[in-house]
């Protein structure tokens, strides 16, 4: 079976294009404004983030030894080591119930 697929509507199409639907135009306008607005919003947000102060991620550990594989931990002067120890104990619940049983030191 042959199907006649020729569409004799050239003139009619041109007429439709010239005669644009006012509702569709209005919708397109809203869409464009919406997209532009969203982009502008993101740009403003990104700009604000770039202006914020950089957060420090440095670990408060002295690395005065030149060997990069070694971490040098130094208690800051004037800080009570007992307080530091208590803080660390809270952060490590796995060992919270352990009491110090012995003390290692130069042979005595």
């Amino acid at each position: 079976m042959m199907i006649n697929s020729k569409v004799p509507t050239t003139k009619a199409t041109h007429k439709n294009l010239k005669k644009a639907d006012p509702i569709a135009t209005f919708k397109n306008s809203i869409l464009i404004v919406s997209v532009v607005g969203t982009m502008a919003g993101w740009l403003i947000l990104l700009d604000q983030e770039a202006d914020s102060l950089p957060a420090s991620t440095a670990i408060p550990v002295s690395t005065s030894i030149s060997n990069p594989n070694v971490i040098v931990a130094q208690t800051p002067s004037g800080v009570d080591i007992t307080q530091l120890r208590q803080v660390n104990k809270v952060e490590r619940p796995a060992v919270e119930a352990i009491a110090v049983v012995a003390r290692t030191r130069s042979s005595r």
Binding site: V101, A102, R103, S107
Partner: peptide
Amino acid sequence: DMGGDIAIGVPNEQKFAKPITWAIAIAKPY
């Protein structure tokens, strides 16, 4: 603990169970 030199003894049957943890302080040199 022999004057600061410390050994931990772990029973044979405990090697595969939850281990007992011992906390040990390192004394400041004097």
